[in-house]
Design a protein around this nucleic acid. Structure first.
Length: 577
RNA sequence: GCCCCGGUAGCUCAGCUGGAUAGAGCGGCUGCCUUCUAAGCAGCAAGUCGCAGGUUCGAGUCCUGCCCGGGGCGCCA
């Protein structure tokens, strides 16, 4: 609807310019939904933008534009000049009735589009290394990435959700050593330093305690899950793994078991990945070596101090980076470049990497690497999200990875459920700090919880239907719904809002900002609930069958949009609550 | 010191490519509703949009500088 008006206005503006002898390109004029009712349905700023070029006062141009606009073939009811030169347009009532018809006819396709034209796109997210349970921060990334993927799927992209983890480096060796130390501790063959030494890196680290060797690594993983994995291995292997190296079975078992837990957590959030890629696979396939060779061939690599460097400073960055340490072991950067080259080889036209704020500095170097290899770095997008803090009773809940005293997603899900968790995680835009209000999320008095407000609005449409059936009303087929029976301003306003949904989805997808959907749904709910509530002014189920059908049609359209929107957020849309 | 992200109502935050009188939820206060089963509605109080300049018809939005908060600046990942 907006687009049609915009097209007409563009045409009129073009005429206006040409007749004034101005053949230059059209300036960017906007047609947007008015914020206030007395400003009409849409407002256009063309007159003010043209004022400079035409050297005429904006209100005069606006008047001429309105004159030329006429009724725009039935589209426009009236238009007037306002403020400094806005053209405010009221659409003909029938236009809104068409919108309702289109929503109902579109069904589950409403809001979807072909913007992506089936092009291949990858969203890589979470990508936590399997060293422990997912934190709440990972949860934010999981929901953000998943919702972005849902938006892009809805707008016609061929989307692959992918999880990449580094399992080739030092981190995983420390993990294996940690499990081994706990295993031997449980068998009475090794000691672990007291807790205060574990928590304070300044305190001395003994080699032995009471004649038992201290095998626990200084920077080892301290969470209780390490002991649980060790216990499980002790049960399975008995003392058979006493001589097993930390980097062997212990590391493999820990990775396997922790990853299984991570996947289970993600499934409980409703998130499924299409591909799990690991750093080790690239080593095994020789792709790390291959990339190194190709990078060398570009001349953007040099050796210094026994290490191999990427000359990122030649690619516009502030400094060079080591890609192979003097020990001969690659840094994370090299496999990451190899991984991204693989993404290009797999034919993705758009590559989105969702990452936490602590990775903000890394992206440019990966881009530099793939640029050096001859790929277009503009196809790689980094989507960063800021950190999550938990608060309760107005105070921040302390989280410490080192002390392993952080709240995990599993714990939070047990309290609030996946739907509420998802809503709270997606409500804010990614680059804003997210304060997760535990009290509000756990709130048993559901009236206060915004996540339920959206779901209930959806459920309410079914409540209305149930009530109607009980009263013997037959649900109208689309042919029986005469939208022109909707005449009340609040009805037309609601239809207008529902009509914005497709554009809202496109924009949210394009900007990779799912939070817009959450806010939009609140607006829809905020219009429908008062409408439903105001039974003094009108009821949905009336004695006038035609009117009842029209209002049921409006109710179905609300249901449609709420259902589509909740699905984009990955939330369930219950029929009753 | 350099880079990135924030700073909008008491709190947590929206504000769409610059648009008209800056919004929502929670909290506070007032009234209504007790349902087309229900978590609802109306209204009030609450703001120097961090500060100072600049760009222009117009700036919360763009530019510059500064202040405050968070993150980063490894031969860690």
């Amino acid at each position: 609807m907006r687009e049609r008006l915009e097209a007409v206005l563009h045409e009129k503006v073009t005429d206006l310019l040409r007749e004034a002898g101005d053949d230059a390109a059209l300036p960017t004029i906007t047609v947007e939904a008015s914020r206030q009712k007395d400003h009409g349905d849409f407002a256009c700023n063309a007159a003010m933008v043209l004022s400079g070029r035409l050297r005429r006062p904006p209100r005069e141009i606006a008047a001429e534009l309105i004159d030329r606009l006429g009724d725009a073939a039935g589209l426009v009811a009236r238009a007037e000049i306002a403020g400094p030169g806005f053209v405010n347009v009221w659409l003909a009532g029938g236009q809104w009735h068409d919108v309702l018809d289109r929503i109902l006819a579109a069904g589950e396709a409403y809001g979807t589009s072909d913007d992506g034209k089936g092009r291949k796109l990858q969203v890589e997210f979470v990508s936590a290394n399997p060293t422990g349970p997912l934190s709440v921060g990972h949860g934010r990334q999981a929901i953000l990435g998943d919702c972005v993927a849902r938006l892009l799927l809805a707008t016609g992209w061929d989307v692959v959700r992918e999880y990449y983890f580094n399992n080739g480096g030092r981190q995983m060796r420390v993990l294996g050593d940690s499990v081994r130390a706990r295993y031997l501790e449980q068998l009475g063959r090794a000691a672990v330093p007291p807790e205060d030494a574990l928590l304070d890196s300044e305190l001395p680290w003994p080699d032995a305690i009471d004649g038992l060797p201290v095998l626990f690594p200084r920077d080892g993983y301290q969470g209780g899950y390490i002991g649980e994995i060790a216990a499980a291995l002790r049960e399975r292997e008995g003392e058979g793994w006493i001589d097993e190296p930390g980097d062997g079975g212990f590391r493999q078992e820990a990775e396997k078991r922790i990853f299984a837990e991570i996947r289970r957590t993600l499934e409980s959030l409703g998130i499924h990945f299409d591909v799990y890629a690991s750093e080790n696979e690239f080593y095994a396939a020789g792709k790390i070596e291959a990339v190194l060779g190709d990078l060398r061939a570009t001349g953007l690599v040099y050796d210094e101090g026994g290490a191999t460097w990427l000359r990122a400073s030649d690619l516009g960055l502030d400094r060079d980076r080591v890609i192979v340490k003097s020990s001969g072991e690659p840094t994370y950067l090299l496999p990451d470049i190899a991984y991204h080259r693989e993404k290009f080889a797999r034919g993705f036209e758009c590559i989105i990497d969702v990452q936490g704020a602590d990775h903000k500095d890394q992206g440019p170097y990966v881009k530099a690497g793939i640029q050096a290899l001859g790929h277009d770095p503009a196809r790689v997008e980094f989507l960063f999200h800021e950190f999550v803090t938990l608060s309760s009773d107005g105070h921040t809940v302390k989280q410490s990875t080192r002390k392993a005293t952080y709240i995990t997603i599993d714990e939070l899900l047990a309290d609030v459920g996946a739907d509420v968790f998802r809503y709270f995680m997606i409500e804010r835009r990614a680059q804003s700090h997210l304060d997760f209000d535990l009290d509000l999320a756990k709130e048993k008095d559901w009236t206060k919880n915004p996540a339920y407000y959206l779901q209930y609005t959806h459920a309410r449409t079914y409540g209305i239907e149930r009530q109607a059936v009980e009263r013997g009303v037959t649900m109208p087929a689309s042919a029986d719904i005469d939208a022109s029976r909707l005449e009340l301003p609040e009805e037309l306003e609601l239809v207008k809002k529902l009509g914005e949904f497709p554009e809202m989805v496109s924009r949210a997808a394009e900007s990779r900002e799912p939070h817009h959907i959450a806010y939009y749904l609140r607006e829809v709910a905020g219009l429908f609930n008062p409408y439903y509530q105001d039974k003094d002014r009108h009821e949905i189920l009336t004695t006038d069958a035609g009117l009842t059908n029209a209002r049921l049609g409006l109710t179905f359209a609300v249901r449609r949009v709420m259902a589509q929107g909740l699905a984009l957020l990955g939330m369930s849309a219950p029929e009753r609550m």
